[in-house]
Design a protein around this nucleic acid. Structure first.
Length: 578
RNA sequence: CGGAGCGUAGCUCAGCUUGGUAGAGCACCAGCUUUGGGAGCUGGCUGUCGCAGGUUCAAAUCCUGUCGCUCCGACCA
């Protein structure tokens, strides 16, 4: 490809609406342009890299035994009503109407469609296992699109769905996908960390997210240096808080004491009260499907909403308003008391975090403005309906499996593998007959990769001050040939043309920078776009019978003209093999 | 949806406080010079000042509304 033939609108400065580095580079390197918030056009170079990521995904999915299909983006709403997700997923559903005013959905994902297909076409255990995948545009009415391709309204996803005869067989399918994902991200040049992930309200143990460590990531990953434990913060557990919970009885009964104006854990922890946060009980009230629920945590702990949702069996809950709390308990939120509210309101279900088990000598609100209770004993003074792990792990706590201190860092989720079970196959009738002639629902798994997000994650991870450093596997072009004088009769340009033709003929993807620009402009652009190899041809080296080969991010190597072709071929092959 | 901020040339931004009829750099076009890391000089083009209403003799500037965008939170690949 000739530079002047394609469109590579590089920018010296990044548009003001790009915040993170990878988003700026996507725009500056001329890979992408925004049409509207969360909606983008891929320019020629961006599309080339995107296609390469897709091709890697396709090859590895095929190798893992999955088969490619293409499902419609447009879906009838009634299948979403059948699965129950018309309501539960309504916040992300894009709805459109046809000329007959009938409603349609733009697919945010395809469990319903594929399960109906399986229901219609798979009848016997002899047809299983099956794994269908597609690479397709998804639509999600994101509450807040951001960071370019990281969270878009319209994005490209690879989604796969496996169908198996049993839990054990589904586990095999799951492992195949897990292994395929490991290969896919490695081939894209990404360092990923597979982490145990929250399974949401479906439950179960089998879900992993593939994370790219990055400060700009929207997830937090808990891990320990042994490499034997990594989990999403939503899922992570530990041996418990570093400071132990008081367990010594400090009085025969709770004692009320005045605390005028104190409505926060912090205020009670400071002078003149000096009740450390870990000696306090935090009382949180949520509204779950119209009913109030109490969650008790140690004062210095944070409620982990994902864990709470898993325990409740629903993700649709919210913090109660100050009015609701006052009406139900007679206290304002800051003075809410675990003792009174759990004892006097039997209709409110009480969950307590495991860390509070056996706690004694605790302090909590008196359920009365301006007063707290001390010498509170969990077992003696508080009614608990269910004990549960509800707290969010903090860095420095010890790992349950390795005993090492846990660390927390931010990461980008690029893939998710999930054992679904029979939720969809039951609701949508994906049943088969087993060897004994019994009708059974297929055991499903689903596996997603954010293809466009992966592309941006590569840029987020592979860059320097000058621009992108594409891994050879996903670079828009492998080699950029840069003649410094582009006059048709110039010996350097003639050599560039020859080399361009020879490399292209051997299957190397080459872009020839045939622009009549100053050398500095060409070098800066080549670095910004990030082609893995650059071959520069100018008067100086030409006079010595040489050209220059420069890997992006590396130093210049002078090479004899006749050696240029084999050297470039060798370097391309070498970095592809890696 | 809650909180914060921003909309002026293709891009980055100034001008707004204190109303007087729109600017700079880069980009783009032409010419000359230059030619190994985003050149120099000369000349030129570029705007419904996001949109609508209001106040005023006069609005980019003040007021109201509205739309869009960005950031923080809940959701997710």
């Amino acid at each position: 490809m000739r530079w002047t033939q394609t469109l590579i609108p590089t920018l010296r400065e990044a548009p003001a609406d790009a915040e993170i580095l990878s988003h700026k580079l996507l725009l500056r390197a001329g890979l992408l342009r925004k049409l509207a918030g969360g909606v983008y056009t891929f320019l020629p170079l961006g599309l080339r890299s995107l296609r390469k990521v897709e091709q890697i995904v396709r090859e590895e999915m095929d190798r893992a035994g999955a088969v490619e299909v293409l499902m419609p983006a447009l879906q009838p709403p009634d299948i979403w009503q059948q699965s129950g997700r018309y309501e539960s997923a309504r916040d992300v559903l894009f709805k459109v109407r046809d000329s007959a005013n009938r409603e349609w959905l733009l697919g945010p994902t395809h469990e319903e469609v594929i399960t109906l297909l399986a229901a219609a076409e798979i009848n016997s255990y002899r047809q299983l296992p099956k794994n269908f995948y597609q690479i397709q545009v998804k639509f999600r009415d994101e509450i807040r699109p951001r960071f370019g391709l990281m969270r878009a309204r319209e994005f490209i996803m690879k989604d796969a769905y496996s169908f198996d005869v049993s839990d054990e067989a589904a586990q095999v399918s799951y492992q195949k996908m897990y292994d395929a994902y490991t290969r896919i991200f490695a081939r894209c040049g990404l360092k990923t960390l597979p982490v145990e992930a929250d399974t949401g309200v479906i439950g179960g143990k089998f879900s992993h997210e593939f994370m790219v460590p990055a400060e700009t990531g929207e997830n937090e990953v808990v891990y320990c240096d042994t490499g034997n434990y990594a989990a999403n913060l939503e899922k992570a557990t530990s041996q418990g808080p570093i400071t132990p919970t008081p367990a010594v009885s400090a009085g025969a009964a709770p004692e009320r004491f005045p605390t005028p104006g104190v409505v926060t854990i912090e205020a009670l922890a400071s002078a003149p009260y000096n009740v450390a946060a870990h000696q306090q009980i935090k009382t949180l009230i949520h509204v779950v499907e119209g009913k109030l629920v109490i969650a008790l945590l140690r004062g210095d702990d944070q409620l982990n909403e994902a864990k709470f949702a898993g325990r409740l069996g629903t993700a649709t809950f919210r913090a109660a308003t100050a009015e609701e709390i006052l009406e139900a308990t007679g206290a304002h939120p800051g003075s809410l008391g675990a003792v009174t509210s759990t004892r006097t309101k039997p209709e409110i279900k009480v969950f307590a975090d495991e860390v509070l088990r056996g706690a004694r000598g605790m302090t909590t609100g008196a359920n009365e403005d301006g007063f707290h209770l001390r010498h509170v004993d969990m077992e003696r003074d508080i009614r608990v309906d269910e004990w549960a792990d509800l707290r969010t792990v903090r860095a420095g706590e010890l790992c349950v499996s390795t005993g090492q201190p846990l660390k927390i860092r931010r990461a980008i989720e690029v893939g998710h593998v999930f054992k679904l079970g029979t939720k969809y196959s039951e609701k949508l009738g994906a049943l088969f007959l087993d060897e004994a002639g019994a009708r059974k629902p297929a055991v499903m798994g689903c596996y997603g990769i954010g293809v466009t997000r992966t592309l941006q994650a590569v840029i987020e991870q592979c860059n320097d001050k000058d621009g992108i450093l594409w891994p050879m596997s996903v670079a828009p072009y492998q080699v950029c040939i840069t003649p410094l004088n582009v006059a048709a009769d110039n010996p350097g340009m003639k050599l560039a043309e020859t080399l361009y033709a020879e490399l292209t003929a051997r299957g190397v993807e080459v872009i020839l920078d045939d622009r009549d620009e100053r050398p500095g402009v060409k070098f800066k652009d080549a670095d910004l776009v990030g082609f893995p190899l650059r071959v520069s041809i100018g008067e100086k080296s030409l006079a010595k019978g040489e050209v220059e080969i420069k890997p992006r991010g590396g130093g210049v190597t002078p090479v004899k003209i006749e050696d240029a072709l084999p050297r470039v071929l060798g370097l391309v092959q070498e970095s592809e093999a890696r």
